[in-house]
Design a protein around this nucleic acid. Structure first.
Lengths: 248, 248
DNA sequence: ATACATTTGTGCGTATGTATG
DNA sequence: GCATACATACGCACAAATGTA
């Protein structure tokens, strides 16, 4: 009786709002300061906490800064480095709209195999579970610059199908569309190293040139590890992280 | 009349709670799973939102993981790398209780000077404002291992006093105690490079060895830049970041 | 210097949705 | 089907920082 008609409550409003605000920032609709919470509540017909959740998401990605008493502001790159910057903070919760987000991939290895014991532990899966292993070179479309060499492993139990064509584009986008799986959170372990001959040949980098190695584990919304990867990033670029030490 | 007696409302309960939970995790009071929200509400005599704020803070630092329907869990290092890991995610909002947090510093340069035009922009200060510049070598106390070479600049307008003795210990701890200034958030720009002869001589690293360069800008609670630094991290270690793609 | 309005931050309560076991 | 646990959303009150009159 009491729930006779479906109310069709749309959840995840805060995510939609965060995406919309993010889009407006890229579109320069908001160039410096955002509207106040009250105005956003009005515009999006939402409660204050919902607006604040959206704002938190953006603030934690380093997209905006909060200033008690005065408002929300678009974050700027104060170093104004000459080098191109790649955001490592935004996997796919926010729509991909960062400037250099256009990346093309060249698949140099695509195999199916079974997990090693170490991988069983990473994935939390049965021994010798089937996985895909993909090796790709990644380039920035805009200027054709080498971005990274990536070795990624996907658990078939969660990602039943992948192929080389998919790997040439965005695997994560495919996974989201096909299986509704996206990255909830990631653990990143960074280190540095030097290109040996094999690496140099594969990537076109000079022998002895340094790389940034990012070992990453990606979790789904259900806290399952569906992928881990080793990415060797170019020394010609800068990589951005934002650290938020407070946030409701 | 209405506010005749001071209620002494202790604010920042969520921060206290986050610190307490964090401490319990280091002390192995919580080894795998945390108590439920309801239990935490009970124990800390707090509302649900307050508990969730504390939990969010820990989750965004990668200290715990949230699992809808089952609970909160202590995050584990699934790669189980042999190398020592330095958390870059925790400046000072949470009490310093990570395993290898004991760091000692050797000051190799301590000067007072005026800002360059570029620094005026970074700090958002008047032209030629006075700053301290500190160069330090940092070592892990436990095994005496080289951690980093750091060049840090502090704005005197916000940090009126520093000296070499302070710099030998934790500058941030001093700043918090003395001026009640702590890092609200930071922008980090990462890149890699190779040790030249000058760098090698200063740090004891081999010429040509790679380093991880972290250029960091630190903001106070009032959104003022009080410090920026260039830190050249050792290739013998791993550095941890956590990326949260959702969070209220 | 004071008072006031505005804006974000913190905290509590409640209801409902969704995932887990 | 059910209880439990976390996620989302709305509402309200007051604190603290800011800007302005």
């Amino acid at each position: 009786m009491k729930k006779s008609l479906k109310k069709k409550v749309k959840l995840m409003k805060y995510l939609d709002i965060a995406n919309e605000i993010n889009q407006r920032i890229t579109d320069r609709v908001y160039e410096e300061q955002l509207p106040s919470e009250a105005q956003l509540m009005e515009e999006f017909s939402s409660g204050r906490n919902t607006i604040r959740s959206a704002i938190s998401l953006l603030a934690n990605h380093g997209i905006i800064r909060r200033h008690q008493g005065s408002g929300y502001f678009v974050n700027q790159d104060l170093f104004e480095t000459g080098r191109n910057i790649t955001m490592l903070t935004n996997k796919n919760s926010l729509n991909t709209n960062q400037p250099d987000k256009q990346i093309k991939s060249k698949v140099i290895n695509f195999t199916s195999r079974l997990t090693t014991p170490k991988e069983d532990q990473i994935f939390g899966c049965q021994k010798k579970s089937p996985v895909y292993e993909v090796h790709r070179l990644r380039y920035i479309v805009e200027d054709n610059a080498f971005l990274s060499f990536e070795k990624a492993v996907f658990l078939k139990e969660l990602i039943p199908y992948l192929d080389e064509t998919i790997a040439q584009n965005s695997i994560f986008r495919f996974i989201k569309k096909q299986y509704d799986i996206e990255v909830l959170h990631s653990d990143d372990f960074l280190s540095v190293g030097l290109a040996d001959e094999e690496f140099a040949e594969k990537t076109g980098q000079a022998v002895g040139s340094p790389y940034l190695l990012v070992k990453e584990i990606n979790f789904t919304k259900k806290n399952k590890v569906f992928n881990y990867s080793h990415s060797y990033y170019s020394p010609d670029r800068e990589y951005y992280y934002h650290l938020a030490n407070t946030l409701k």
